[in-house]
């Protein structure tokens, strides 16, 4: 049972000091979670701390590979609106 940080991580350091198991470490090109140490905060907090402060949607996955913060959940930007804006920018 472990969470995972993927390549969309922006290396903001916010999660690292919050981890009760000291499972998060700085690495290149982005922070990583030591799966042997990660407890998903069970017994320490009601919610996994890294995913609770992470500002990037989709950067932290659960053991099943599902994003804890899915698209639109943090920014409030509807995913279709984001896709539309990005498509328009690329067209220019």
């Amino acid at each position: 049972m472990s969470l995972k940080i993927i390549e969309t991580c922006v290396n903001c350091f916010a999660c690292e000091p919050l981890c009760p198991s000291k499972a998060i470490y700085e690495a290149k090109p982005h922070f990583l979670i030591d799966s042997k140490k990660c407890t998903e905060c069970e017994g320490d907090f009601a919610v996994p701390q890294c995913a609770t402060i992470c500002p990037i949607e989709g950067a932290i996955l659960d053991a099943l590979g599902v994003a804890l913060n899915p698209p639109g959940s943090l920014t409030g930007i509807p995913p279709e609106k984001m896709a539309e804006a990005m498509a328009e920018l690329q067209a220019h």
């Binding site: 290396n11 903001c12 916010a14 402060i53 500002p55 990037i56 409030g76």
Partner: peptide, 16 residues
């Protein structure tokens, strides 16, 4: 100071 504890609607943390 890279970490933040809030999100503002005028900010995008991916931007660099």
């Amino acid at each position: 100071a890279p970490a933040c504890n809030i999100q503002c609607h005028y900010c995008n943390r991916k931007y660099d």
